[in-house]
Design a protein around this nucleic acid. Structure first.
Length: 492
RNA sequence: UCCUGACUAGCUCAAUCGGCAGAGCGAGCGGCUGUUAACCGCUAGGUUCUAGGUUCAAGUCCUAGGUCAGGAGCCA
């Protein structure tokens, strides 16, 4: 089952347009010309231009809003416009008695998505819908910049996934999608803010890379002049390991590409990954960094995006709780926990999904089962080396296990961060590269890092869309990025 | 790549055993001073994914193909 998208749209009527010369209206083919006309002339006698986010500061004052008609409801001598300006949604009310007959007629026939400049007085009114809502503007004047065409496709009520995504360029105007993408922006800003104020240097790592960094995943390939093939980066980590020996603590934050044919609600082929890397840092130190940073992100989203989260119906109490420290369990303990859960499960279908043997990686049902035992994100550390990347430091005294750690978000959101302490010995790394059958030449520079002042160091990757989806309580990561790229979609 | 399912009006969906193609929303026109996806009346809107087949008769049954979704695997 999949959640339907609820979208609002107004009744839309248009009988005449006073700002278009009659001569143009009368020509047969003139309709599209009329609709397409843009009027940006009459911007005089306007009050101060304010944004919807700031509207509470202007109660009792006359202001000007610039935005788009998101919805319209007519009620006799009243016309309610729900106007969005990019920063929020606010109700604007036209009362026939306050306006010229021509202007009221025009307002009460404005099509959805028409661009407008509105002047009016701000008042508090609990009935007024919007984000944040509770305020409305009594219209004194309204200028139509463009009367939108009548066939705006993102209509009211439910839309299927395919239709919504085909119209993603318009869908992002809708309240739910707008709210999600605002949260995303705040997640990203909070991430950078925490890192920048905690001694990290922002480094950009290459997007075009010579070969598979981890030697496992499928990569997007492209021609590279006379040098043969280049590949779109799946991680900046190896470069960041070089960067820390120059800058100590670094991070990269950019697009990442995975050509695997993953087809789930947690995967995109192009997503934005944050990757911090830290010198003189072991696995315990890494977990501290992760929990501090995640705590900061969650608390700042709560502070700055409460109206958006409330609109999305997010249970804020589930997020208010997210504060360091987070519980830490070993892979061994997680395996025991899964065994107990397996034995307790009575539903045969669910029982089958929980089946687990030491040595395998967690599947989605396993992650979900583990995180359901906690009301905070949980660290699972010490995975079997066989299921993790070649560069991870072996656990002292237990070579079959490595110093890796995944951070699993609650409520079934699963892995949001994956990291490890990196192998710091030249000898061990070289041996592992040989064992994996990786080309030693390609890793010469990476091996050099272990020769000239090697230190214990650690780092992790965080999936922006997964964190955003968790913050918003939405089902699928494709809504947590403006233009998602999935196995079946590169349009729009 | 594998498993499962869906495809009918612009959108979301109905259509009983194989028997006249339907509704809500959206669009157009009209009504209403507090609407929240308003409500009420009227109007327009269809190559039922494609190609074959069975049948007096196919949206419905059969075959092949297409598109999309959910899940698995892989990963952040």
């Amino acid at each position: 089952m999949y959640q339907k998208y609820t979208l609002a749209s107004p009744p839309s009527r248009r009988r005449f347009h006073p700002q278009i010369p009659m001569r143009q209206m009368e020509t047969g083919r003139g309709v599209s010309a009329i609709i397409g006309a843009i009027n940006f002339q009459r911007i005089s006698s306007m009050a101060e231009h304010v944004s919807v986010t700031q509207i509470s500061k202007y109660v009792g004052q006359e202001v000007t809003l610039k935005g788009w008609v998101y919805n319209r409801t007519d009620k006799g001598k009243l016309s309610f416009l729900l106007v969005r300006d990019g920063t929020g949604f606010i109700q604007c009310v036209a009362f026939k008695g306050d306006l010229s007959p021509e202007l009221f007629e025009q307002i009460s026939h404005l099509p959805q998505e028409s661009s407008v400049i509105i002047t009016g007085s701000v008042r508090e009114d609990k009935r007024a819908p919007g984000i944040p809502g509770g305020y409305e503007v009594g219209i004194k004047d309204l200028q139509v910049v463009q009367t939108a065409e009548l066939d705006y496709p993102m209509s009211l009520k439910d839309h299927g996934v395919d239709f919504a995504l085909d119209n993603r360029h318009l869908w992002i105007r809708m309240q739910s999608q707008w709210a999600i993408l605002r949260v995303r922006a705040t997640v990203m800003a909070a991430t950078r803010e925490w890192l920048d104020t905690n001694g990290f240097t922002a480094m950009d790592t290459p997007i075009l890379t010579p070969a598979a960094a981890e030697g496992t995943t499928t990569l997007f390939e492209t021609e590279y002049f006379d040098e043969g093939k280049a590949y779109l980066a799946q991680t900046g980590q190896l470069y960041n390991e070089a960067n820390i020996f120059a800058f100590g603590k670094v991070y990269c934050f950019g697009p990442t590409f995975r050509a695997e044919k993953s087809k789930t609600r947690r995967h995109l082929t192009e997503f934005w990954m944050l990757e911090p890397e830290i010198a003189f840092c072991d696995l315990d130190g890494l977990m501290e960094v992760e929990e501090q940073m995640i705590t900061h992100i969650v608390q700042r989203v709560l502070r700055d995006r409460e109206p958006e989260l409330k609109f999305l119906g997010r249970d804020l109490s589930k997020l208010e709780n997210i504060k360091a420290p987070f519980p830490r369990i070993s892979y061994d303990d997680a395996a025991k926990m899964l065994q107990d859960l397996y034995e307790k499960e009575t539903d045969p279908e669910k029982k089958e999904l929980l089946k687990f043997d030491w040595g395998i990686d967690f599947g989605a049902p396993h992650e979900t089962a583990i995180t359901q035992q906690f009301d905070k994100p949980v660290f699972v550390y010490g995975y079997p080396s066989a299921v993790k990347a070649f560069y991870m430091e072996p656990w002292p005294g237990r070579p079959e296990v490595c110093k890796s750690v995944d951070l699993l978000a609650p409520e079934g959101y699963g892995e949001i961060c994956g990291g490890s302490e990196r192998m710091s010995s030249h000898e061990n790394l070289l041996a592992r590269i040989h064992k994996e059958g990786l080309p030693e030449d390609a890793f010469k520079w990476y091996l050099d890092l272990r020769k000239y002042g090697s230190v214990p160091h650690s780092g992790f990757g965080m999936g922006t869309e997964r964190v955003t989806a968790w913050m918003c309580g939405i089902e699928h990561v494709r809504e947590a990025i403006a233009f998602p790229r999935t196995i079946k979609r590169v349009y729009p």
